[in-house]
């Protein structure tokens, strides 16, 4: 069956990409919340946060990008849930196609949609004064990090979409993910936080990812953060993928 995997995934990805291009509002709404957060922090709260010599826009952008992804993947869970509800999933499953291609189509579509949202957010950040002297290599590093993070979160969205009982339940899983960057080094340096909060902030995945992206964009050495960040994202990706696959198989038992 795997002989058809590429062709089937391409056909189904084409289908779900059309869902997105025919409702561009889903991409725009994905970008609106992070842009609003960025405006709020840059113009209202950011003045009170000491980020040393780094401009505040440059400081907060990595965290805002992660929030963009966290809110964007909720649509994947939503679309997957609708496919299951409408019966079209069963139609595809009763056809001689590679079964995993149905999930991969949603994952690749999520990746494409999130990259567009991220580009919009970076565009707004440029208008707000974000500047980076990073070269191609560093930008590729940033892109790679964001892609890995998107994939990890998307596979979590797949689990949510497959196991949800209601539309609201399908996207509710993303709320804690959207919140996570607030308790990290994304908006304020962790040194200013009290003991236990600081411990949590410094040891949760977002901080190492944010620090890595921030250092890459500022052309600073990335230290060991990059290995911690990669370990977190790859670890989450593998776990989420495995759990999603098991959930998927169980649905057809």
């Amino acid at each position: 069956m795997s002989t058809h995997f590429v062709g089937d995934t391409a056909a189904l990805t084409g289908r779900s990409l059309r869902h997105i291009t025919r409702s561009m509002d889903t991409i725009v709404t994905t970008a609106i919340m992070p842009v609003a957060i960025m405006l709020l922090f840059v113009y209202v709260l950011g003045g009170a946060i000491d980020t040393g010599s780094t401009s505040y826009v440059n400081y907060l952008l990595p965290g805002v990008l992660l929030i963009t992804i966290a809110s964007g993947v909720a649509y994947t869970a939503y679309r997957l849930f609708l496919d299951l509800q409408s019966g079209i999933f069963e139609r595809f499953q009763s056809m001689p196609i590679a079964r995993s291609s149905m999930l991969w189509a949603h994952v690749l579509t999520s990746l494409a949609a999130n990259l567009v949202s991220l580009a919009i957010v970076i565009g707004v950040a440029l208008l707000l004064g974000f500047r980076s002297s990073a070269g191609l290599g560093a930008w590729l590093g940033v892109a790679g990090m964001l892609v890995l993070f998107t994939l990890a979160l998307t596979w979590m969205a797949v689990i949510a979409g497959l196991s949800a009982k209601t539309v609201d339940g399908a996207s509710a899983f993303s709320y804690p993910l959207i919140f996570l960057p607030f308790v990290s080094s994304a908006f304020a340096p962790t040194d200013s936080m009290p003991g236990p909060v600081r411990w949590f902030a410094e040891n949760q995945p977002v901080t190492s990812i944010v620090d890595t992206i921030r250092n890459l964009l500022a052309q600073q050495p990335v230290s060991s953060d990059i290995w911690t960040a990669l370990a977190w994202t790859l670890g989450l990706l593998v776990l989420a993928y495995a759990a999603a696959t098991i959930t998927y198989r169980r649905r057809t038992a």
């Binding site: 289908r15 025919r22 409702s23 409408s86 019966g87 079209i88 069963e90 139609r91």
Partner: peptide
């Protein structure tokens, strides 16, 4: 299936 399983967006 029981409910016309067509893709409404397409």
């Amino acid at each position: 299936g029981q409910f016309a399983a067509v893709d409404e967006v397409l």
